[in-house]
């Protein structure tokens, strides 16, 4: 059976067409019209795959706005199933998206989870604000991090105040590379504080768009003192998980729209 997983996040929408493995996927920016955003990524993925889905699962913030989905599941469950399908040894998932970061303990499904509170510190949004203050592209943050020799200390956990710190470092003539690495360390320490609230067991898998940033992986490995696995395309892990949950669910012959 071909299943579609559609993850409508706070910043991006992802769609995966899945049979035994990923057939095709698509990533798009989220617009305020969530239903149409979901339709657009879905048709794009269908176009790439040349087949459409028999069963559709929606996840992410916008899941309840995807009226054409057969099933709606939270992104916490989906990231857990997605990460485990890619790395069967996975016991912990760290998902860093645009607005939320989560640490998920995985067993057969989700054992436990912690999410950041509503402030943006420790999320992709935080890095986007800082990247624009530094006038660099978010996709370049990883390379800059590699060239740092002495990361600065960012002590504010609040995005707004951290930006003032960045501005102050720029004014002091600090190297951009060192500021970037300092920001990655700041994010990692926020995540580590969350991870302490659940039992962090290896292997740890990093997912979400921010996982594409090698600097964040580096900082997390340093602070958690643990090796971190990153899937080839970390941003679609939630959508893959949605498809897998849907496959299991449909094969058990269940019909309700909720898990």
């Amino acid at each position: 059976m071909i299943v579609a997983g559609i993850d409508v996040g706070s910043l991006t929408a992802k769609c995966v067409l899945f049979e035994e493995k990923v057939i095709a996927y698509s990533i798009a920016k989220v617009t305020p019209d969530l239903e149409n955003t979901a339709k657009a990524v879905y048709s794009d993925a269908v176009k790439k795959a040349g087949v459409s889905a028999e069963y559709i699962v929606a996840t992410g913030y916008g899941r309840n706005k995807v009226s054409f989905a057969n099933l709606k599941v939270t992104e916490i469950t989906c990231h857990a199933f997605g990460a485990k399908s890619i790395f069967p040894s996975c016991r912990t998932v760290i998902d860093i998206g645009g607005q939320d970061s989560k640490v998920i303990a995985v067993e057969n499904g989700v054992k436990n989870f912690v999410m950041n509170d509503k402030c943006a510190a420790g999320t992709g949004r935080f890095l986007e604000v800082m990247a624009s203050a530094l006038n660099v592209d978010v996709s370049k943050l990883g390379e800059l991090d590699e060239k740092a020799d002495k990361p600065v200390n960012i002590s504010s956990t609040c995005t707004v105040f951290a930006e003032s710190e960045v501005v102050s470092y720029i004014a002091q003539g600090e190297k951009v590379e060192n500021i970037v690495a300092g920001l990655h360390n700041a994010i990692a320490s926020r995540i580590a504080a969350m991870a302490k609230r659940i039992d962090l067991k290896p292997d740890v898998v990093l997912t979400g768009g921010v996982a594409k940033n090698k600097g964040v992986k580096r900082a997390l490995e340093e602070i958690l003192q643990i090796k971190i696995l990153v899937p080839e395309e970390p941003q679609i892990v939630g959508a893959i998980g949605a498809a897998i949950v849907g496959k299991n669910y449909a094969s058990r012959g269940r019909k309700s729209e909720r898990f």
Binding site: T74, I76, F113, F259
Partner: peptide, 24 residues
């Protein structure tokens, strides 16, 4: 769940995920 002024959709995601943890 920590509350200040509640952001309903954020809370809903946490509560739904908790439901899934229990039902899984």
């Amino acid at each position: 769940l920590e509350l200040e002024f509640p952001v309903i959709e954020q809370l809903r995601t946490r509560i739904e995920a908790f439901y899934e943890v229990i039902m899984c």
